[in-house]
Design a protein around this nucleic acid. Structure first.
Lengths: 144, 144
DNA sequence: AGTGTCAATGCAATTCATTATCATTTGTGG
DNA sequence: CCACAAATGATAATGAATTGCATTGACACT
């Protein structure tokens, strides 16, 4: 499989956009991260490596990465959009603790299959889906 | 079954809050609406009936209605939160056409059950969930 | 009716994430 | 190496949502 960086370069070339050091650095920073980063957090990490980079560039690059299917936006219902690398990763959904913010990745074939089926029944060609389960985790329930 | 207005009154009474004409008017306006309204749109409709009502009151009342489980917030990923009456309605998810914006309400017991199960397996007490299926509807595929 | 209390309101101002503007700099294909 | 479109960083602007505040209103008790 191709490296994410190569995929990004190809995407940029195809769109007649430029491969700049900033863009490379931003992608590299996301890839190095296991967690789901908000653009704010990402900006902080990027800035630590090159303090001259501006917020706007981070936002702009994130958009490109999402469009290039290298990164996926997540909505944990706390007002900020988070991102995770998606290129080469298996699709998964999220189970989120609304108290501590902990989140667990889930993958359930039963659900995935039903989703496809439902869409077909309605005459839709499914292109993507989002599923978020919100709840309170064990620790937070005990911690009361 | 009780009327939504009664439920709201009961909720307000329990919380030592007041049943004001503005609040009643806002709830009434939502109930009269079949579509999913953003607070902006709701504000416009409310203002048409009583031009003295302020935006903030609409926001504040929506929060109360959500808390009272009379109304449910929806997130169609377009930056604005929409609301729909949920009291007395069966829970459902949404299948959205990314071309024309059409959205179909779906309800699938299989998925609902699996969601509960998954949460339990992870030690979570599920409080809510969101599931959105995005695709292209029959009409829009033909219309090409 | 008068008064005390406290929530509710409308307005304006504010917050916060995200986006647009713009002058300047920098890749990239020729 | 050049020309030029695209990218950048700084900053201003946007837009949804929230908050502060002075005023108003509702209700209970006298």
């Amino acid at each position: 499989m191709k490296e994410p960086q190569e995929v990004f370069d190809a995407y940029l070339a195809e769109k007649n956009l430029k491969a700049t050091p900033q863009r490379r650095l931003i992608l590299d920073t996301i890839l190095k991260q296991k967690d789901h980063l908000s653009s704010e957090e990402l900006y902080a990490k990027v800035k630590a490596r090159d303090s001259s980079i501006g917020q706007a560039t981070v936002y702009r690059t994130l958009k490109l990465l999402v469009d290039a299917d290298i990164v996926e936006p997540l909505d944990f219902a706390d007002g900020v959009t988070r991102y995770e690398p998606s290129y080469g990763e298996e699709h998964h959904d999220h189970l989120i603790c609304t108290v501590c913010g902990k989140n667990i990745e889930i993958l359930d074939p039963t659900i995935e299959k039903r989703q496809e089926q439902i869409a077909k029944e309605q005459g839709f060609k499914l292109s993507s889906h989002k599923m978020y389960l919100y709840g309170i985790c064990n620790d937070c329930r005990k911690g009361k």
